[in-house]
Amino acid sequence: MGKFIGHLYPGLYLFYYGLYQATVVFKAMTVYDSLLYPSWPPRNKGIWARLWKISYGGLLKIVIGSILTVYVVFCLDDMMVLMDKKNALRFMYPKEWQHLTMFILLTLNGCVDVMSKNLLPRRCVLLEKCTLVLTFYVLLLLLMSHVQNSTGIELQTHCLLILVVFLLMLVLTIELWTPDTFHLLLIETFLFLMMGSWLIQVGFILYKPVTGYPWQDDDISDIMFITTFFCWHVMINASCLLGIYGISSLWYRHYCPSLKLMASKEAPHHKGSLYKLLQGVEQSEKEDQALLLSKSSS
């Protein structure tokens, strides 16, 4: 992965995943739908109904993670070896093994998503969230050790990437207790966009500079402009989210008004346990009042 393609492909995947999640979040916000249990559009029963409910996000994680894993294994000339037996049993390719660990975690996270949404009798959102949080905890640990021998431009770019991963890890951890919160999911979506776009930018900075001249580690202006470019990514991704929200709001309010009606009808189904609890409390209060009235009359 220590090449241009190794930064480009994961960055593209994370960026497009952020765009997809932005459309899902803004759709739920516009039609007042649930984020964890979205209302399904009317479909015929049979194979089409089952295909509609497949966890395509989980399948995409499995496919992308498997492809990147194979790429890391075969990108080296002498294949992936753990130790060099000829030179005092020294470990070989430490960064490549860290990349391999990251992509295996992505594949396992996709397997958990598919299992939770399509194989278990009932979806376990907590299992999906815990797996995702664990993935980013491990990713943060790997990135912290990934920059041990880095200096100058490479160190600055990866430190900013570590900042995004750290913030994303915090947001995902908070979501374990409040998984259906729009504000947290919106921040999570923005951080996924930042992680993807900045990873692409790192590939261009380190391996294919747009100007054709390599960045200089001993030039302080080059290092300062790294942070400036990162701030530009913040503004661009924020503007991208605003644009997606505007387009989604216009589309679902003017061209798909039936989705809003369907979501409002299915809201009691998603919150049925809460309604039952409130009904139980109300019933117990009525019984207590009746008992007090009977005592006072006697």
Rank of each mutant, 00 (worst) to 15 (best):
I5T: 06
A49C: 11
T107G: 12
L68V: 11
F190Q: 07
W52C: 10
M169F: 02
K53Q: 13
T69Q: 09
E287H: 09
L185K: 08
R90P: 01
D33N: 09
Q98G: 14
S150H: 10
N118F: 06
K208L: 12
H254N: 14
S66A: 15
Q289W: 11
F166N: 01
P38Q: 04
F229D: 11
T157Q: 10
F182Q: 04
E96C: 07
R253G: 02
L163M: 07
T107Y: 09
L250M: 05
A263P: 07
L120A: 05
S66Q: 08
S221W: 15
A238Q: 04
Y245L: 09
F136P: 00
Q148F: 15
F230D: 05
F26K: 00
L14M: 03
C124Y: 11
L139C: 10
S197V: 00
I174F: 10
H270P: 00
C75R: 14
Y13P: 02
I47R: 11
L68M: 14
V138T: 09
N87M: 09
K27M: 03
Y13I: 03
L176Q: 12
F103C: 00
L259A: 05
A22D: 03
Y16P: 02
E154V: 10
Y93N: 06
I67C: 14
P10C: 06
D113E: 15
V24W: 07
L14A: 06
D288N: 09
Y20K: 11
D218M: 14
F225H: 12
H99N: 03
L278H: 08
L119S: 11
A263R: 12
G65Y: 04
L139Q: 13
F91D: 05
